[in-house]
Design a protein around this nucleic acid. Structure first.
Length: 487
RNA sequence: GGGAGUGUAGCUCAGCAGGUAGAGCAACGGACUUUUAAUCCGUAGGUCCUGGGUUCGAAUCCCAGCACUCUCACCA
């Protein structure tokens, strides 16, 4: 939606007037190819104090401008840093008119000698003919000191947020680097990256409401995936022994500082492994990311301090329920009594669901330092292999950090008969179930799936912790927002 | 969906025992060749979120709505 021209306020009209001035000087305000751009961070790093002959050529956005009559100082910023640019009437004789047209927000290219001013500021002194307009900024930029503060505006105008607030740029660069590290590490370990369907005829592998879409020529509804799990397991059947996928999942649930309707998930599967192998792998992978891209071994997170020193705590579901929930998972009366105390409405709710309600209400918040919670009540885990000696427990762990669920892993269930039975069990008291009958998946299992360990890591949440932000919207470039200004 | 809070100039915010709006930055005009949130002098800029109500009079009080933030619930 383009802004109607008559709605332009005075400030925008001033900028439009400036655009005309630039054009009147015979200069294209929107520039063209500009070769030989040196990243500003690189210019700063490469500067030698005793060498007077250094030059620099770069491009970026004007974020500050100090006009002193016949001398103009500009702070130019690109995605690697900021540098001062000096424009003097004496040096820029033929381009001085252009120099006086510059405004905060404009994108320019400059070239000239590199030196320090008497106050010690590294400065590119632009030479005549070396000032290039690359793009005029017509919209009015935010205030230079406080910047863009309004949270809603920051998300809606993320492109402004990125250049106004350098820490935002830095955070998203860190996000990409963390994902690169994970990818490189998994590949070094022999994993192969694959892509499985985002549109599925059945949404399985997790317990969540899906988004529905429609395929016109087939005239069928399709679901945006809530998890890639059941397809990745089909690949295990096909003989792809170590695979991973880093991509989007979609869940049609409420929004919060920890939930975005589309989020990025790492899922990986390793044939012939189990959940203990996954536990070691998780600890190694996250430790590596923290060492390379965050402060390690301690991370400040909100008002908490997380200690990532290895080995991480490993405790069973039952132990934790006893320690923090003060009830015995194997004595359902004690659990229900606790549920009543906590004000949980548990009549007509299956035992396992009540246990989980109490767990979530009492245990999760205490799991600040990384903690592996293992051996879940089997009925809560229809896709997981049972413990050999304890069929009521499933070989599953979840990793918690900062009271937040970060990873989930199983020894994968590969017995088609048990899987079929599990798909039929519907627990009372659950809004959504993980157990949706999937005939096609059962067929795959009947061909034989190797025993395997499987792991899912919520990438957005991992990045929240590693970059120390408490809202998932701060690690997603364009978080979900209510559409605005549409008629 | 429940609770709490916020909505005033382009941006960041004041103003609220009811008397029809203020600062800083940005903008415009002027001065200034070493500033760096440049400085100095001057000018202009508002549907006080929207709609009702109370009142002689509402940015301010009341009601409803909209948007956003936090929080609880949902997301086992």
């Amino acid at each position: 939606m383009t802004e109607p021209i008559q709605d332009l306020n005075k400030l925008e009209q001033e900028r439009l007037r400036r655009l005309e001035e630039i054009k009147a000087l015979g200069v294209d305000p929107y520039g063209s190819r500009f070769d030989g751009v040196q990243p500003i961070g690189q210019i700063r790093a490469g500067f030698k104090e005793d060498d007077q002959s250094q030059r620099a050529r770069t491009a970026g956005r004007i974020v500050l401008l100090r006009d002193m009559g016949r001398l103009v100082f500009i702070t130019l910023r690109d995605w690697t840093g900021s540098i001062q640019v000096g424009l003097s009437k004496g040096m820029l004789s033929s381009q001085w008119g252009q120099a006086k047209c510059l405004e905060i927000g404009d994108i320019i290219g400059v070239e000239g000698t590199l030196g320090r001013t008497k106050t010690g500021e590294l400065t590119i002194w632009v030479e005549d003919g070396r000032l290039t307009f690359l793009s005029k900024c017509l919209a009015v930029p935010p205030e230079k000191f406080h910047g863009l503060v309004d949270v809603d505006q920051r998300y809606r105008l993320r492109y402004v947020d990125l250049w106004i607030n350098p820490e935002v740029m830095e955070r998203f660069k860190t996000r990409s680097r963390i994902i690169s590290t994970i990818r490189a590490q998994l590949e070094a370990m022999g994993f192969l990256e694959v892509e499985t369907p985002m549109m599925q005829s059945q949404a399985g592998g997790a317990a969540a409401r899906p988004f529905v879409t429609h395929h016109n020529s087939l005239d069928i509804d399709l679901y945006l995936r809530i998890s890639p799990e059941l397809y990745l397991k089909r690949l295990l059947v096909g003989g792809m022994d170590k695979i991973f996928e880093i991509n989007r999942c979609f869940r049609n649930e409420g929004l919060s500082t920890r939930h975005n309707p589309e989020f990025t998930m790492l899922e990986l599967y390793q044939a012939y492994a189990d959940y203990r192998v996954m536990m070691d792998l998780t600890e190694e992978l996250i430790t590596l990311c923290a060492q390379r891209h965050a402060s390690w071994p301690t991370i400040r997170y909100g008002d908490q301090v997380l200690d990532l020193t290895r080995p991480w705590r490993r405790a069973t579901y039952a132990e934790l329920l006893e320690q923090y929930g003060c009830c015995n998972m194997f004595d359902i009366d004690s659990v229900r009594a606790r549920a009543s105390q906590l004000g949980i409405e548990h009549q007509g709710m299956d035992d396992q669901v009540v246990i989980n309600e109490v767990f979530e209400a009492t245990v999760e918040q205490h799991l600040v330092n990384p903690t592996f919670v293992l051996d879940y009540p089997a009925a809560l885990c229809p896709l997981t292999k049972r413990k050999k000696d304890r069929p009521d427990l499933a070989e599953r762990f979840e990793l918690y950090m900062a009271g937040m669920e970060l990873a989930n892993a199983y020894t994968e269930l590969n017995d088609p008969a048990v899987q079929e039975e599990n798909f039929k069990i519907q627990l009372r008291g659950q809004a959504e179930t993980m157990a949706r009958m999937d005939r096609d998946f059962l067929t795959a299992l009947r061909y034989g799936m190797p025993p395997a360990g499987g792991l899912g890591i919520g990438i957005d949440r991992l990045i929240m912790i590693l970059t120390g932000v408490t809202s998932i919207r701060d690690v997603i470039l364009f978080p979900h927002l209510r559409p605005k200004g549409q008629d």
